[in-house]
Structures are given as C-alpha cells and as structure tokens.
Nucleic acid binder design. Structure first.
Lengths: 130, 130
DNA sequence: CTAACCCCTGACCCTTGCGTCAGGGGCAAG
DNA sequence: CTTGCCCCTGACGCAAGGGTCAGGGGTTAG
C-alpha cells in the first residue's frame, strides 16, 4: 500500500502521514526499491488512533512523547485502562487537557457574558484590562 | 509623551502601539524634529479602548475596518448605543463574535464530555472522525 | 563628554497541524 | 514511447498579535 492509499484508508492525506512520521508519531515505514513508502494495515490502524487522539485535542507533541504506547490503543483490541498495562501513561496528558478545556470553557463563557452584557446595556461599563 | 510612556499609560508596549498604527487602528501621531512619535492623552485613551475591544475577542481587522468610529468609545464619554450615533456599526461584528463564541463553547463542551467519558469508561468507545 | 536609556525601521520568531508549491523521478496503461 | 497519475524532498504559507533582535541615532543627567 503506498502513501496515498494508506492516507485515504486512514481518512487523511499523504502530507499528514509524512508529517506524523517526521514528528515521531509513526515509525519510518518500509520503502520500495525506488524509495516509495510502503504501509500495511497496522500502520493505517495506528494513524487512525492518532487522528482520534488529535481530534480529542491532544497535541502532536503529547503523542510523540508517548509514541511507544500508541499501538496499545489500536481499535481492534479491548482498550481499557485497567486491562491494558501502560495505557495509563496517557492519563496525565488527558487530565491536563481536561483542565485546559475547563479553563478555556470558563474563559469563553465569562467573555460571552461580558460581551452580551455590553450589547444589552449599550456597553456603558467596559471592563478593566484583564 | 513619547511612545514608551504612552504605552505604559495604556497598559501595553511600544511595539503594540507601532503595530496598531501600522494596521490602521491609530492615526500616525505627531513626530518630534528627530522623528520620535509624540502622543497625547487622547491617543492613550484610544489605545485603551482598542485594548478592551481586543480583550473582548474582536480582531485587529474588525477594529481597523471601523477605525473611524473608535473614538466614539472613549471611556470618559457616555457610551450608549442609543445615545451615540454611529456606535451601532460595531453591532454586526459583536454579534458575529457572540455567535462564534457560542459555537466554540459548544464545541469545547462537547469535546470535554467525550474526553471525560473516555477517562470514565477506559476509552473503550473511541468516536469516529469528526 | 559620556554613560545610560530611549527611540527609529526592518525583519525574523512564535504557536499548531498541516496545505501548497517547486523541481525531479517512478509506474502502469494505451 | 508517451501520457497521466503518483511519489520523493525541501521549503514556504497560514492565522493573530505582537516579541525580539540588529543596527543606528536621540536625549538627558552627571
């Protein structure tokens, strides 16, 4: 499977795959004699895992620092913290992400409230610099 | 008043003032014979207004396209939509910003829910690509 | 006069996850 | 053999709001 097909199978683009490889999320794949990357189903599965974790808001660096555990999250395995030794290496980054999400939601909600208030009152009470 | 003092008075940096000037938020100020920018209290007030609007999430481009109305928001004036003709030129951009804030809050809240769910269940149900 | 700041312009750096060329080579079909 | 699609690497672009030099000049106190 060449990069275009692998990317399509994983729901992304060749550019993204090369990018993940460059950033250490994917092991350098086998190459054909002419230098073209060759992917198998396992790598495609791994890319799918990567995409889902990214969609949850984890960063490329988060995943890169735990690249050696990424295969533990393959979709065809039973993926449970209690049943998958080593999976809990993701717990810190996930809870950190949860915290930043909460902070961000709170910030935006606060902001939304102020902005709506301005509209309602005609903006007579601009807040001080925050 | 030179740029450093003006920036400090407005709670920001010289770089930001030059940036606002370059982007059309500030009129080019008077210059001394040697070319140094000279600011008065009115420009400082204007910068404060700019900073507050930016803090509310409006963009530099939003403000640039309405730069001619910015002085209407000076803090020492009574700032009311109904009493300040022309102020309503900000209404569209403010309501647009409100809409994007709502969308963003909803998105993050959704994300937070999924992430928390993963933690709770051990992540056995990864969502499809979204 | 000179140190110690301050200011000037222009230009590159940052963050994130890739998109988009640019220039050159590979590979199966007609 | 040629067309047409795919792949390679390397490098720049983006969005936003400035930060941070680099190199050169002003200004004011001692």
């Amino acid at each position: 499977m060449r990069i275009g097909d692998a990317a399509a199978a994983a729901g992304t683009t060749p550019r993204a795959l090369r990018f993940y490889e460059q950033r250490g999320l994917l092991h350098p794949p086998a190459r054909t004699a002419s230098g073209q990357r060759e992917y198998g189903p396992a790598e495609v599965a791994r890319v799918r895992v990567i995409r889902r974790l990214l969609a949850l808001g984890l960063t490329v660096d988060d995943l890169a620092s735990r690249a050696h555990r990424l295969d533990l999250l393959a979709e065809d395995r039973p993926w449970r913290c209690s049943a998958t030794p080593g999976l809990d290496t993701f717990a810190p980054v996930v809870s950190a992400r949860l915290a930043t999400l909460d902070a961000e939601i709170a910030r935006l909600t606060e902001l939304r409230g102020r902005l709506a208030h301005h509209v309602a009152t005609g903006g007579a009470d601009l807040p001080a610099d925050t």
